[in-house]
Amino acid sequence: MGKIKHIVQALRLGLLLAVVTCNTYAGSWQKDVAIGGFDRVHIYTPDTLSPIGRGRSLLVVLHGCVQPIDAYLTANLDIAAEEFGMVVAVPEAVHKAGYNCWSYWEGTKSRSSGDYKNLIDLANTLSGDTSRDIDRDQVYIAGLSSGAVFANTTACIAPDVFAGMGISAGPSIGTSATGAIRNCETADVANRCRRYADRYDRYLNSQIASVAHGTGDSVVDRCYNTQNSEGMAEVYGIERLPDTKTFGNGNRTASETLWRDGRVSMLWLNDVDHTWSGGEGASGNYISDAGVNYARYLGQYFIDNNKRVNRDVVSE
């Protein structure tokens, strides 16, 4: 009996340690983590779980030009993370192209090159970390400005990894550096995205995309909101729905247009300039408190429209 008692105690201790390990980072920011090829990543792991699928979702957020990743510590990402059971990771670009930009107009666009590789490695490393309990069918990527283009490109390169994207105030994929500032450069978004996906293009059939732009943006041309939305809709082969709806957080609003099955969302962020829309109380460099909390919008949009999760399975 004594031996059995010791075995039971050991099992209970092991279970307790496992629970403690799984919640080591819950409800807090880990700052300046070296992971997935990046030297600095801020990571927030919530106490909550996603209401769909198993475990938590993951949202990788890419900063804009001249924007430090510390700005996102006060951008209300943690609010969205807790509400939707979403781990948030904010990496600092390694292969920058001046002004702290993600180098979307330079280099080879492939799974094995530069920060594209690093982002795929980051997503896979975090998804493989059992202490964070991330559902691989709920991995998403978003960004602002140069980070938006880079996120869009990465999601096209690795649609098997990223089930969805959030593209805010970004030029179109494949455009030049001169196409970013107060200039609208025409781009064949659909063909470029399919070409980037290459042999992984079948995963585009279950990917979703939110495209957003501030109505007061005077830096990156607002034409890209429509061009990017329509381009991704062409990639997915879906038609636009006729109605436009208003999405709101308190007195902060955005205008939302959806494509069939929620596969693409075009959002106009009212009263927002060339900044990440953080919602009420948000602050930081190129972070706006004038519009809705875009991270909260993304959290709900991904939950409502994710095409990969088995909705008969729910986290316990």
Score class of each variant (00 low, 15 high):
270 N>G: 03
220 V>L: 05
112 S>Y: 11
305 N>Q: 02
78 D>R: 03
302 F>W: 07
233 A>F: 01
129 D>M: 15
124 N>L: 14
107 G>F: 02
79 I>S: 13
137 D>G: 14
180 A>F: 01
252 R>C: 03
78 D>E: 07
137 D>H: 15
273 D>F: 02
154 T>M: 09
104 Y>A: 13
50 S>V: 06
174 G>I: 05
246 T>C: 09
316 E>D: 12
260 R>D: 09
243 D>A: 12
78 D>P: 00
292 V>T: 03
203 Y>Q: 01
176 S>I: 04
154 T>W: 01
275 T>N: 10
137 D>C: 06
235 V>G: 06
192 R>W: 04
201 D>W: 14
87 V>F: 08
44 Y>S: 13
257 T>V: 13
130 T>R: 15
187 A>Q: 05
31 K>A: 09
257 T>Q: 13
283 S>M: 05
258 L>D: 00
119 L>Q: 04
87 V>S: 05
196 Y>I: 07
271 D>K: 11
192 R>S: 04
295 A>R: 02
269 L>W: 01
171 P>T: 10
264 V>C: 02
284 G>F: 02
151 A>P: 01
278 G>C: 05
285 N>A: 06
300 Q>R: 10
249 N>M: 03
101 C>T: 08
261 D>F: 08
276 W>C: 00
280 E>V: 07
193 C>E: 00
171 P>M: 11
61 V>T: 14
307 K>D: 02
15 L>Q: 15
123 A>H: 11
310 N>M: 03
305 N>L: 02
97 A>D: 07
168 S>E: 14
169 A>G: 10
28 S>F: 00
136 R>Y: 14
189 V>A: 02
16 L>Y: 08
204 L>F: 04
